[in-house]
Design a binder for these strands. Structure first.
Length: 786
DNA sequence: GGCTTAGGCTTTTTT
DNA sequence: AGCCTAAGCC
């Protein structure tokens, strides 16, 4: 490096801590950056990318990979801001998500993948539709979700159907393998790919095609990957291959924040990279610039219960801060009310201190999307602005998918899934029987389903379809519409084409029919219309058809977190809020909250069965149980470390307020948080605890005033839970000992092999004769003694 | 043959 | 709330 160059490079590193600077400026081979929560991960990545450019590496020879479009945009922009002083074309770095990288790769090398350029990207809903059809054609007894996860697993391990079939035997496995094969054939026929294909097909091409591989390997001098703990086997291999020439692979992540193993992520990938790439350097960023000492200690105490390959200690020089509050409430609705009261109080105190309270600084985190309902209702009731992340994602809404399906059949005439989706939506008299005849014709004559439909417009040829007069008339009307739609696509830009499609198909009129839903559906279609405007500027000198393809690619690859900053701001429109604040409170799942931070964080519903979630713990072996529980614990850890100033953890005594309610037990994770960092507050009377704490109520929901809780000491309660309560102390109906024969509704009969009391409940391990070994909670499982 | 309606069932997390 | 099925109606 020349002196001038090295001065530029040094300037780019300004403002980094010593540890950050070392990680950002190490360019001598592979490195792993283990970055704890709030340690400046994004900062280090963007500075490092800028540093690479400042040393003279051309932007097009760098590559940055993230999981979300939002993270990609942030990395690109921050790097550009830092480097543009020295490098004029700093914005030309290749920063993208795994999936958009794959899509771009396949658009270029579509021939090698056996696709045409206009292939369709199928999302989960499309996949499910295809599989449903295949399963019902086979008359097979298979669950769509289970087949899908088999297929995903196979693809993530680079197994084609025959390979997948050979790795295991058993009825179910063979059936899944067969369906997988048919599914692949269907994709091929449809000129379509699924999300996994966006990685798998490029990987296979790279492995097989020496020319393409060496071209790419030579090109990418530096590769950086974000959130590496969430990569799967395929993504690991893809990165390894791409970086094999220059070996400048830099991965950033935190094994403690790995929360996607259900999506086949391999948290051990971080450590494994060091084995695969000899001489790999490991940097640790252990100082948190985000949270208070209290929050860091609390979170560290929790995560210490997980077995870890490398011990890590997170620390901070921030202030001590307030204790973590564990709040006990009556039921989820009460929990929501208490949370809103606490938010209200915090906003008011912010107003008195700095003159303004900002709801943007507050988030409520929860395990399942369904939990947002109680919170939404409470926000609406009080007129508090909120921002709901996730739930039903925009591009997954029915009317949006229908509208896009109309456009998709124009771009890709082989896209049967989209054609089936809208051939009789709105109802136009083309029912199952008519559709079957069209299908038969298409199979018999080797033409696409769409071509068979379009035949109906031809007076003579249409007889071949074998339809009655009435049915033919209806298909012909649809066919005529599709023909004009396709013709119009040559000249109309996406905005006008969409409008034509919605009008001409009768979709607009149909949407108006349902009084309940029309306002929302219409609004969503309007929003889609706005998006199409961005792809409809003739000045961009992009042909209408190309613009349409670009639009569809965008809708396929854009996820929901990406729109986080767009202020979805639902809630009531009037600002009659009794909260003195601006902005909007964020409601978000723990998974989606990763990477975000807020001054004040509430984690709601921290009860056994919800966090850890019962479904996650429904596994066969003890080892699997430990692994699943570990992942749920990491989820809790991610949630806790989102908080900068104040963390509230809430759990409701009952599962709901209705008469179906069942008692909850607090999450096992609560007692793993060191008690020095915790203050417990009872907003509801806890049965069995005496005396009931005197509670002072605020106006709306009964929030207790701040005071130290009058409850038995934590140590005493733990002693009660663990040493003094044995199986024999439990109520008869949930008392199961080893050897007891039981019957379960779905698992059938089995024998108890082990049982352990957990918080007034019993964790029972049962070996079922049909279903294998299951671990269940006695109060939930409804086991019958036999 | 196709459409509408009612009732039962289920809902972990998502690039 | 949305999907599926069954039943009754046009």
């Amino acid at each position: 490096m020349s002196t001038a160059t090295s001065q530029k490079a040094e300037a780019v590193l300004e403002g980094l801590s010593e540890a950050q600077r070392q990680a950002a400026s190490y360019l001598d081979g592979p490195l792993i950056i283990v970055a704890g929560p709030g340690s400046g991960k994004t900062r280090v990545m963007s500075h490092r990318m800028a540093y690479i450019l400042a040393t003279g590496v051309p932007p097009w020879r760098t590559m940055g990979v993230t999981f979300t479009n939002k993270a990609a945009a942030e990395l690109r922009e921050r790097c550009n801001i830092l480097a543009s002083r020295f490098v004029p074309n700093a914005a030309e770095t290749n920063v993208s998500t795994f999936h958009s990288f794959g899509a771009r790769f396949l658009r270029i090398h579509h021939d090698a993948a056996g696709l045409s350029r206009d292939f369709t990207i199928y999302d989960r809903d499309d996949q499910e539709r295809m599989l449903k059809l295949i399963i019902s054609d086979l008359n097979a007894d298979a669950k769509v979700g289970e087949v899908l996860s088999s297929i995903e697993k196979a693809k993530n391990n680079n197994q084609k159907p025959d390979m997948f079939a050979s790795i295991d035997t058993g009825y179910r496995h063979e059936l899944h393998a067969e369906i997988y094969g048919l599914y692949e054939a269907e994709l091929q026929k449809s000129n379509g790919v699924d999300f996994d294909d966006l990685l798998l097909k490029p990987y296979r091409i790279l492995v097989q095609d020496d020319h393409i591989r060496s071209e790419m390997q030579d090109r990418y001098q530096h590769i950086m990957v974000d959130e590496f703990q969430d990569t799967n086997a395929l993504q690991f291999e893809l990165i390894r291959v791409l970086g094999d020439t220059h070996r400048n692979i830099c991965v950033v992540g935190d094994p403690d924040q790995s929360i996607y193993s259900w999506r086949n992520a391999r948290p051990e990938n971080m450590e494994r990279l060091a084995e695969v790439l000899p001489g790999c350097k490991i940097f640790e960023l252990s100082e948190s610039y985000r949270s208070t000492k209290t929050i860091i200690s609390a979170a560290s105490g929790l995560i210490a219960h997980n077995p870890r390959m490398i011990e890590r200690v997170l620390f901070t020089n921030n202030e001590q801060g307030e204790p973590v509050e564990i709040g006990v409430t009556e039921h989820p609705e009460h929990e929501a009310a208490v949370i809103m009261d606490l938010v209200d109080r915090r906003m008011r105190s912010a107003v008195s201190k700095n003159g303004v309270g900002n709801l943007d600084d507050v988030a409520v985190l929860y395990r399942t999307n369904a939990q947002s309902r109680a919170l939404e209702t409470e926000c609406s009731r009080r007129g508090v602005q909120y921002r709901l992340i996730g739930g039903m994602r925009f591009y997954e809404r029915r009317e949006i998918k229908d509208a896009l399906a109309l456009l998709r059949i124009v771009v890709n005439p082989n896209d049967e899934t989209s054609l089936r989706r809208i051939i009789n939506v709105p109802p136009r008299g083309i029912g199952p029987a008519t559709l079957r005849k069209i299908e038969e014709f298409s199979l018999l004559n080797g033409v696409t389903l769409l071509d068979a439909v379009l035949l109906a417009s031809d007076p003579t040829e249409s007889r071949g379809l074998g339809l009655g007069n009435a049915a033919l008339r209806k298909v012909r009307a649809f066919s005529d519409f599709v023909r004009t739609l396709v013709l119009n696509s040559e000249t109309l830009y996406p905005n006008d084409l969409l409008e034509y499609a919605l009008k001409g198909s009768g979709y607009n009129d149909w949407v108006q029919k349902d009084e309940e839903t029309r306002a929302e559906r219409f609004q969503n279609l309007e929003e889609l219309g706005m998006l199409t405007e961005q792809y409809s500027n003739p000045d961009d000198r992009i042909e209408p058809r190309q613009a349409l393809s670009d639009l569809l690619e965008h809708t396929a690859l854009f996820a929901n977190v990406d729109t986080l900053d767009d202020g979805v701001g639902t809630g009531s429109d009037e600002l009659n809020s009794n909260v003195d604040a601006v902005g909007a409170i964020t409601l978000i799942t723990l998974h989606q909250a990763k990477g975000l931070e807020f001054d004040t964080v509430f984690i709601a519903g921290v009860a056994e069965g919800l966090l850890p979630h019962a479904m996650a713990l429904n596994v066969r072996t003890q080892d699997e149980y430990e692994a699943a529980c570990g992942e749920e614990r990491r989820l809790m850890y991610v949630g806790m470390t989102r908080a900068k100033q104040k963390l509230h953890i809430m759990w409701p005594l009952y599962t709901s307020s209705s008469f179906h309610r069942r008692p909850n037990t607090p999450s096992q994770f609560l007692k793993e948080i060191p008690e020095e960092q915790v203050k417990e507050i009872e907003y509801a009377r806890v049965p069995g605890r005496t005396p009931p704490p005197p509670v002072a109520f605020s106006s709306s929901s009964g929030v207790a005033v701040d005071r130290d809780p009058v409850v038995p000491s934590r140590r005493r309660r733990e002693r009660e839970k663990f040493s003094e309560i044995g199986v024999d102390d439990l109520p008869e109906e949930i008392r199961f000992k080893a050897g007891q024969r039981v019957r379960h509704e779905t698992f059938g009969t089995g024998v108890v092999v082990n049982s352990r009391p957990v918080d007034g409940d019993l964790r029972v391990t049962v070996a079922f004769s049909e279903a294998g070994v299951k671990i269940v909670m006695a109060s939930m499982a409804n086991l019958e003694k036999i």
